[in-house]
Computed example of a mutant assay.
Amino acid sequence: MKKNYKSYFEANQKRWDELVSHHIKSRYYDLEGFKHGKTSLLPTELKELTNLEGKSLLHLQCHFGMDTLSWARDHGAIVTGLDFSENAIEMARELSDVLEIPATFIQANVYDIPTVIHEQFDVVFTSYGVLCWLPDLTGWAKAVSHCMKSGGRFYIVDTHPYGEMLDERYSDRVSLGYPYTSKNGVPHEWEEDGTYADPEGVTTILKNKTEYGWYHSMSEIINALLQAGLHLEFLHESTKGFFKYHPDMVKRADGLWEFKNMRPEIPLTFSLLARKP
């Protein structure tokens, strides 16, 4: 990365370290259900990322590891998870031990991957609210490629750039309140008392309220992967979300979210699969 983003990363890390203790108690994550065998994975990735039995899988920005462990327990993958939050990685390791699901967890920033990971994987996976914390997608894509075996797969499912623009402050209409892309690497700054895992803000009051994020266009995402030498196999877009983007949204039985009264035909998530030659 050409610019120094250290202060932004440090602020975000403090916030995510604090979020772990709230997320493990939230209905959104349903940790107790997971402990009793419920998968934390959603229908999109379960449909699109298959044939993982015996495959090595690296999960980037894994939070406290529920998805990582789901790939191992339910799909037979040999898993490694990486996240920059110390508290998240400690919790992930604890879950791995308690549930007796073999896994390796590494605390590191994604951009430090070339210096901390020397193994290459059959699959690199990342999902749901990941790209918004990354200022430089060129460096990110190079890190992804660094971890992949020849012929390996990279899969991502995340908020669609259009979905990132939705203004959640208005319940009576669907409007756009945020930019399509960040200019010159300048982050957007938020002051947030709570968390997406508690959208009503009833139970979560945080000390670390400041967070920084970056908006990325679809062309920026795809071009970064292509420039890193990966070959795109598919790109899908969906009107379903993975959290409550807007006050009118409700959670479906399958864990995805959709608008209840309003029916804007706009993409909220995207997924893509790329392969290393």
Results as ranks from 00 to 15, higher is better:
Glu32Ile: 00
Glu258Ala: 03
Gly76Phe: 10
Glu53Lys: 14
Leu41Asp: 03
Gln107Cys: 13
Asp97Lys: 14
Asn4Tyr: 03
Lys149Leu: 14
Glu90Thr: 10
Arg153Gly: 04
Gly65Glu: 13
Glu45Cys: 02
Phe64Pro: 12
Thr204Ala: 04
Lys260Asn: 14
Ser238Arg: 15
Asn261Ser: 10
Val250Cys: 01
Tyr155Ala: 08
Leu57Val: 11
Gly139Ser: 15
Glu258Cys: 05
Pro161Phe: 05
Lys142Leu: 15
Arg27Thr: 06
Pro267Phe: 13
Cys62Trp: 08
Lys47Gln: 09
Val124Gln: 02
Pro267Tyr: 11
Ser182Ile: 01
Thr195Asp: 12
Phe64Glu: 14
Lys183Phe: 13
Ala224Val: 09
Tyr180Glu: 11
Lys251Asp: 00
Gly65Asn: 14
Lys142Asp: 14
Tyr111Ala: 08
Arg73Trp: 04
Arg27Trp: 09
Phe270Val: 09
Arg173Ile: 01
Thr269Glu: 14
Asp198Gly: 11
Leu235Val: 12
Thr68Pro: 13
Ser171Ala: 15
Leu235Glu: 03
Tyr28Ala: 14
Leu206Glu: 10
Ser40Phe: 11
Gly65Met: 13
Val157Pro: 00
His36Arg: 15
Lys240Pro: 06
Phe105Trp: 02
Arg93Gln: 15
Lys240Ile: 14
Thr44Gly: 10
Leu230Tyr: 02
Arg73Glu: 05
Tyr5Glu: 05
Pro187Ala: 06
Arg263Cys: 06
Ile113Trp: 00
Asp83Glu: 10
